[in-house]
C-alpha cells in the first residue's frame, strides 16, 4: 500500500474488522472441522481394534 495520508488509511481501516472476521471465521471453521473429524477417526480406530480383538479372543 503506497498511500501516505492519514485520511485514506482511516477509510481503509474501517473495512478491517470485516476482513479480519472473514479470515478468522474461515480458519477457525477449517481447523475446528478437521480436528473434529480426525478425533472421530482416531476414536473409531480404537473401537474397531477393540472389537476385532474381542472377536479374535472369542474365536481363539
Amino acid at each position: 500500500m503506497e498511500a501516505t495520508n492519514k485520511e485514506l488509511y482511516d477509510l481503509v481501516l474501517k473495512d478491517a474488522p470485516y476482513v479480519i472476521a472473514a479470515y478468522g471465521v474461515l480458519w477457525v471453521a477449517f481447523v475446528g472441522y478437521v480436528s473434529l473429524v480426525l478425533r472421530r477417526i482416531m476414536r473409531l480406530e480404537k473401537d474397531v481394534q477393540a472389537v476385532q480383538e474381542a472377536v479374535e479372543r472369542r474365536e481363539g
Binding site: 500500500m1 498511500a3 485514506l8 477509510l11 473495512d15 478491517a16 476482513v19 472473514a22 479470515y23 474461515l26
Partner: peptide, 11 residues
Amino acid sequence: RPWFSQKIFYF
C-alpha cells in the same frame, strides 16, 4: 477509494 475489503476476495 482504496478498497481494503477486496482482500476478502482471495479466500
